[in-house]
């Protein structure tokens, strides 16, 4: 066994790429859940994003337009969920599961003629000066634009949720929709647009998968990434900054176990793959034990339909 052949620089570099799709999707879901909606259709929206992004960038020759299309695709699919749960008051858990089923099927149909195509390459964005720093330069500043963009979005969502009025309204709606409604906020509208935002970000995550991480379109290519995104949101205790940590830990465990295997360490892969989920449960428990910090827990109205009767 030769531990020296594991280079932390490349591990971190790779795990950032591995984590980016789930980071996008999780960030979107975080905002949705903050608004009190549980959308289990992340996997479906991701794969729709993956095919829309891929198809459009192949047709236009531009990855950037592809990413816009990925976001639009994810958002469009989430409209179905938003209408069902916000206007038809359908149960969110069931609707989300149905959305995943629908999205996976639809993506396969849409993508029929795109298997085997090659998407336009996207160049790495070497940040000036920063990328020349030894070790750290290669780790952190040698990525493509969309890795940085995901981090910028985390900053944005954090700022939006904690520093802007609208963000606080979103949180209020998620915490207690009846009082938010009583104060005069439109719970339905706020949730509707939160769901759309979540869909768009899930779409971006899918787009990153099909355009950069794997660069190709294959049916069913998300292979459960959307479900991991859901776990990360919980892991992060609904805090945008911790989302980065969560995504990098979940992504990192895969990369690390592959590296350990490659140098011949005998590890129990099933056990290792379980750990992030077990950690998430422990984190959840710790958060809920600590009652003094109520803001750490799940949004109060998570998963409940808002019924406005007049």
């Amino acid at each position: 066994m030769d531990f020296a052949s594991i280079d932390p620089t490349t591990i971190i570099y790779n795990l950032m790429i591995a984590a980016t799709p789930i980071l996008y999707a999780a960030l979107g879901e975080l905002l949705v859940e903050k608004a009190g909606v549980l959308n289990l259709g992340v996997e479906g929206m991701m794969i729709i994003g993956a095919i829309c992004g891929f198809a459009i960038s192949v047709e236009t020759g531009s990855s950037y337009i592809g990413f816009i299309a990925a976001a639009c695709g994810g958002a469009m699919l989430s409209v179905i969920f938003a209408v069902m749960t916000q206007y038809f008051l359908a149960n969110q858990v069931a609707s989300g599961l149905a959305l995943t089923l629908f999205g996976l099927g639809l993506a396969a149909l849409l993508g029929h003629s795109y298997t085997g195509q090659v998407p336009p390459q996207i160049s790495k964005l070497d940040l000036p000066i920063l990328s020349t720093i030894p070790v750290f330069g290669k780790m952190f500043f040698h990525h493509d634009f969309f890795v940085y963009f995901s981090l910028m979005l985390v900053l944005f969502v954090w700022y939006f949720l904690t520093k802007t009025r609208l963000g606080l309204v979103v949180q209020a709606v998620g915490e207690n929709h009846d009082s938010a409604h009583a104060i005069g906020y439109s719970v339905t509208t706020i949730r509707f647009f939160s769901i759309l935002f979540g869909g768009a970000l899930a779409g971006l995550g899918g787009g990153y998968l099909s355009l950069i991480r794997v660069p190709q379109w294959t049916e069913g290519m998300t292979a459960g990434a959307g479900w991991i995104a859901l776990a990360i949101v919980v892991f992060s205790s609904w805090r945008p900054w911790r989302l980065i940590l969560g995504a990098y830990i979940f992504g990192g465990i895969t990369i690390l176990q592959l590296n350990l295997q490659a140098i011949g360490v005998n590890i129990d892969i099933a056990l290792l793959s379980m750990t992030p989920y077990a950690i998430t449960i422990v984190a959840l428990v710790l958060m809920s034990v600590n009652k003094s910090k109520k803001s750490l827990g799940a949004p109060g109205s998570l998963g409940k339909s808002f019924i406005k009767v007049s």
Partner: peptide, 9 residues
């Protein structure tokens, strides 16, 4: 099979 999935959805 994908069309059946969409249909069920």
């Amino acid at each position: 099979a994908a069309a059946i999935q969409v249909f069920q959805g």
